[in-house]
Design a protein around this nucleic acid. Sequence first.
RNA 1: GGGCGAGUGGCGGAAUGGUAUACGCUAUGGACUUAAAAUCCAUUGCCGCAAGGCUUGAGGGUUCGAGUCCCUCCUCGCCCACCA
Length: 831
Amino acid sequence: MTEETYPYQTIEPKWQAFWEKERLFETDTSRTEGKYYCLVMFPYPSSMLHVGHGRNYIIGDVVARYKRMKGFNVLSPIGWDAFGLPAENAAIKGGLHPKKSTLANIATMKRQLRQWGVCYDWRREVTSCLPDYYKWTQWIFLKLFEKGLAYKKRAAANWCSSCQTVLANEQVVNGACERCETPVIQKFLEQWFFKITDYADRLLLDLEKLTDWPERVRIMQRNWIGKSTGVEIDFPIKEEEPLRCFTTRVDTIYGATYMVMAPEHPRLESLIARSPNRQEIESFVERVLRQNKEERSALETKKEGIFTGRTVTNPMTGKEIPLWVANYVLLEYGTGAVMAVPAHDQRDFEFAKQYRLPIEVVIDNPREPLEASRLEAAYIEEGILVHSGPFNGLPSREGMEKIADDMEKRKIGRRASAYRLRDWLISRQRYWGAPIPILYCDRCGILPVPEKELPVLLPEEVSFKPTGESPLKDVPEFVNAVCPRCRGRARREIDTMDTFVDSSWYFLRYLSPKESKRPFDPEVVNRWLPVDQYIGGVEHAILHLLYSRFIVKVLHDLKYLSFDEPFERLFTQGMIIKDGMKMSKSKGNVVSPDELIERFGVDTVRLYTLFIGPPEKDAEWNDRAVEGSFRFLNRVWRLLKALSASGAPKESALERVVPDEKGKVLRRKVHTTLKKVTEDMEGSFRFNTAIASTMELVNEMARTLGEDPRTLSKNEKLLLREASEILVYLLAPFVPHLAEELWSLLGHKESIFRAPWPEYDPSALETEEFTLVVQVNGKVRAKLQVSAGVSEDELKKKILGESAVQKWLNGKRVKQWIIVPQKLVNLVVQG
RNA sequence: GGGCGAGUGGCGGAAUGGUAUACGCUAUGGACUUAAAAUCCAUUGCCGCAAGGCUUGAGGGUUCGAGUCCCUCCUCGCCCACCA
C-alpha cells in the first residue's frame, strides 16, 4: 500500500480538460423536457476570489452536477455584473480604465472558477458592461419609460462635498463618505426613478407564491414593502385646498390637536407666503434640509419644529388647530403631512410637551383611566373611545371602521394604504454604467432615444475627475445629439443607470445570449423560466431580488414573458467568517484558496467548504481543519487502490452473492448511506451531513477490507466492489475530479456525470436483529440485541429477565409499558 | 423601538418528541521508523477508584420521555428603524 498522498496535481487538470472536451455542461435549450435551470448570482469582477466567494459557486456546481446525474437537463450559466463603482473609483485614483481593469478581473476569475472545477456553459457568458448586453438594459429602460414607469423628479441624494460627488447609499458609512470620511449631506438633484411603488401590492401579494424561498427572505421583503392600511383625511384650510394626511389610527382623530408637515412639503412655500415669520420658517427648513438622513432620523436627534402661522380644521371636531413644520415628518411616506395626536403617539407627545401644544385623551385605557395632565408618555395601545362625539364608548377597532365609514360617506376621507417602499432611484452621476437613453431638446422636451438607435454607447475616452457629475458631461461627441423629432439640436442625458438595473434581467439573457434583434428569445425564455434554483448571498435578500421580481412583472405585463416571478426556489448561503469577521481585503483576513489548492488540491478545498457546516449558516474558516478533508480523500484513494490491487471484480454481479453477516452489515451501510445522502441532496442542501455519512461509509468499508485484502472472500470482494461504486457516486458532486479518476479506475469509460444516480435497495436495509434501548422511568438502563420478529410478550419477558433491568425495578410493579417498535421500551414504575 | 435567527464538548458541528455529543478538527498514549513526516490503533463532555451521578444559555411548564413543544428571562448575530 502506498503511503503517498494522491496525485491531485495530475488528476485535476486532466479532468478539467476532459469536461471541456466533452462539453459536459453545454446545454441544449431546445430540449425542455426535464429542464433544470440552476443559477448562481453573477459576480462583480473584483480582483481575486477568496474562499468566501467560492462557497457560492461550489454550492451551485454541486447542485448542477447532482441534478445532472439525476437525469435533469441542467442549465448552469455564468456572467459578470461588470458595471459599478469600485472600478471607476480605482480609475479616479489613477488606476486603469474601468473597462481594462474589469476585463482583466474577469479573465482572472474565469481562470479561478475553472481551476475550482466549477463548470458552466461558457457559450452563454454575459458581461453587463459590454454594448451587446447594455443595449438591452437601455431597451428595458425605454419600455418602462413608454409605460410611464420611468420618470424624472427632483430628489435628495447623498452628497460628499469633499469628493464633489453623489454617493450611493451603500457608500455612506455612519453618515460619512466611505472614501474621505466627510459627513454626507443631502443635495437636491433631478433624478430618474422607476415606479416600483405601482407594483407594491403585487410584489407583496406574490410573496405568498414563493413557498420555496427562505421564510426570512420573504419576511425581509414584506417588511421592506411595509404596507400599512389606514385612512387619508382632508383637513380644510381657509382660502386654500385642504391639506391631506394619512393615519393608521383614525380612531384617535378627535385628539388631533395640531397638524405637522414635512419641511420638503411642496405646499409649504405657498402656505407660508404671507406669514409674518416667513424668513424664520425658511431658515429652519433650510437648516433641517442641510442635515443628512442619518442625522435627521437618529433617535437622539431632538424633534424640532416651527409654527407656520396657519391653521387647519379638524374635520371631526370642527376646531381650528395650528399647522406646524417639523423635522420628524417624512415627505416620502404617506402624504408628507400628519395629524398629530399627542396623547396617543409618542413622537407627537414629545413634540407637544416641548412646544406646549394641547394634549387631549380620546382613547381610554380600559384597565386604568387616563388623565392628560398626568401622562408621562403617550398611551399608544388600543382602548375605548372617549371625547369622540358620536363614537364614544366604541373599542378602537370598531371606532376605526365607523369613523372611516362616516368620512367616506361625507367625502372628507377615504380608506388607503401607505408603503415604506419608495420608488427606485436609478440615476447615478457616474461614468461606469449603462447610459440612460434619453434626449433633451429645447423645443420638444424630454424624448426617449429611438429603439433603432440603441445602444447609446458609453464613450471610452473620458477623464476621471471627481466633479460631482458624470464625466460624460465633458464629452461633447456624447452630449451633443440630434432631436429625433424636430431634427434640431439636443443634449443627451449624462447620468448612467444603477447597476441593479443590469442585474435585474441577466437571467433572461442567458437563454439566448447572442440575440442581436431583441433582448431575449421569448419562446425559449418562457419554456426555461422561472429559474428552478437560485443560489446567492443573503445580502441580496432585499434589493436585487425585489428589483428582479419587479422587472419581470413589468415585462410580463408588456406580454414579453408568460411568467411573473423569476425565481422558483431560492437558497441563500451563509458567509464564511475568519477570526470572527466577514472576510475582506481591508480587514486583512482573506483566505486565498491558491495556497490551499497547491498543498491539498481543489477537491479538498471544495470538500472542506461543503463540510464546514450547514450551507445556509455562517461558518468560521479553520485552516487546520482543511487537512481533515485532505486526509479523508487520501483514505478513499488508498482504499480503492488497495481494492483494485486485491483483484476485485470489474463488475458488481450482486445476484450471485449471498452475503454473510459481515457482508450484510456492509451492504446495509452502503444502502442506508445512499438513502441518507440522496435525501440530504434533495430539499434543503445538507451537504455537511451528506459528507459526514459518506465518511462513515468509508470507515465501514475499511473495516470490511481489514488488514490484508488478500484474505477477502470472493463474496466480500463483490460487495466491496458495489460499495466502491456507490461511494464514487456519492462523492462525485462534491469532489468531481477525484470521482472521475476513481470511476475510471473502476473500469468505466464514460464520465460519471453521464451515469445515472443510483437507487438504494430497500431489501438491503432490512435487519434480522436490532439494538433495543430499555429505559426505566425515562433513564437508559440496558441495551439488548433483539430479533426483528419478536412478539410483544416475548419482548417483555426478555426485558424482565435482564439482570441490568431487574436491578432498577427493585421488585416494584411495572405500571406502564411504552413501546417504540424496533427502537425503545420505557418501563414506568412507581417512584 | 420593531422583525428574524441562534445559544449543545477544547473547536466546527450531529440528533422525524425516543440511546445527546454522529462526522471531523485538536490533544494524549501506543504501533511502524535510526529519526521525523505520513499512516494505523486506542482514549478524548464533566465529577467519580468504581458503582453511579451530572450535562444542550438560566428558570419554570407539558409529557412515560424534552436539545427538540409552551411560558418567562439572559446573551449574541442579522435586517429594518421618527414610516404617522
